[in-house]
């Protein structure tokens, strides 16, 4: 509320709808966008790209993170790669991806690369914190390796994984939408932003930004909330 008030005051001060639209006109634009026929489709397509990239990346990061946490050699191979992925500007990745891939897949790919180091980093951290006493117990009781992975490794990793996932969820939408702005797939929030910007329709740009903020914060809180639904946490 305070934020909107400040926004309103500054927009009054600036006095130009193109440079800074007032909150009313942004929300009016948002309402108009929502009412438009293609709105749902646009949002769903962006969601689809984000969720696909996110899930693929999470799965890969989990497997490779476990391997790197367990095996020093894999860790040594992975570390410089993670550093490179983390430091390369997102826009370089987007521009390269446009050369390599179809516009539809660029945001998925970019999302994958942005999410991967966050989640794999958390998984590696989680592996380091697995209770060696439990592993020793399982070893003496001759528990199979598969059972050890599913009943010691994965549950121990869940808190780290969920924390990583919720951080990554915030970043996902930034990356996906940035990639969409440049690659401009047919239905996409980023494409909508790009068009608004070209037409100097700043109110629409703000409206799309509000949509992006809502998606981002909802997905982040869903993942944060999951932690409280773990049965052994609820009971203790």
């Amino acid at each position: 509320m305070v934020l909107i008030l400040i926004w309103k005051l500054i927009s009054l001060f600036v006095g130009s709808e193109i440079i800074l639209p007032s909150p009313e006109s942004a929300f009016r634009a948002l309402f108009r966008l929502i009412m438009e026929e293609g709105f749902l489709k646009t949002v769903l397509f962006t969601l689809k790209r984000g969720v696909t990239g996110f899930l693929l990346s999470a799965a890969a990061a989990l497997i490779i993170g476990i391997a790197a946490g367990e095996n020093r050699f894999v860790f040594i191979l992975l570390k410089p790669l993670l550093t490179v992925i983390k430091t390369v500007p997102v826009l370089s990745i987007v521009l390269l991806a446009i050369i390599w891939l179809t516009t539809e897949n660029v945001p998925v790919f970019v999302c994958f690369l942005v999410v991967f180091p966050i989640i794999s980093g958390n998984v590696i951290e989680g592996i380091k914190n697995i209770d060696p006493h439990l592993l020793e117990m399982a070893d003496i009781y001759r528990v199979s390796k598969i059972k050890i992975i599913f009943q010691i490794y994965i549950p121990s990793l869940i808190p780290y994984l969920l924390a990583g996932l919720s951080t990554a969820a915030g970043v996902t939408w930034k990356a996906v939408i940035a990639a969409e702005v440049i690659s401009m797939p047919r239905s996409a929030i980023g494409t909508g932003m790009q068009f608004a910007q070209i037409q100097l329709n700043t109110a629409d740009l703000f409206a799309w930004t509000i949509v992006a903020i809502i998606i981002s914060s909802v997905s982040e809180s869903i993942l944060l909330m999951l932690q409280y639904f773990l049965p052994w946490r609820r009971q203790s």
């Binding site: 006493h133 439990l134 117990m137 399982a138 009781y141 001759r142 528990v143 199979s144 059972k147 009943q151 010691i152 549950p155 869940i158 773990l230 049965p231 052994w232 203790s236």
Partner: peptide, 21 residues
Amino acid sequence: FQEPRLLPWLTVKSNLKFVLG
């Protein structure tokens, strides 16, 4: 062991089953 070393995410019964593979 000196400590029970139970898996906190498994119920008492599942902790027993864990070693019955």
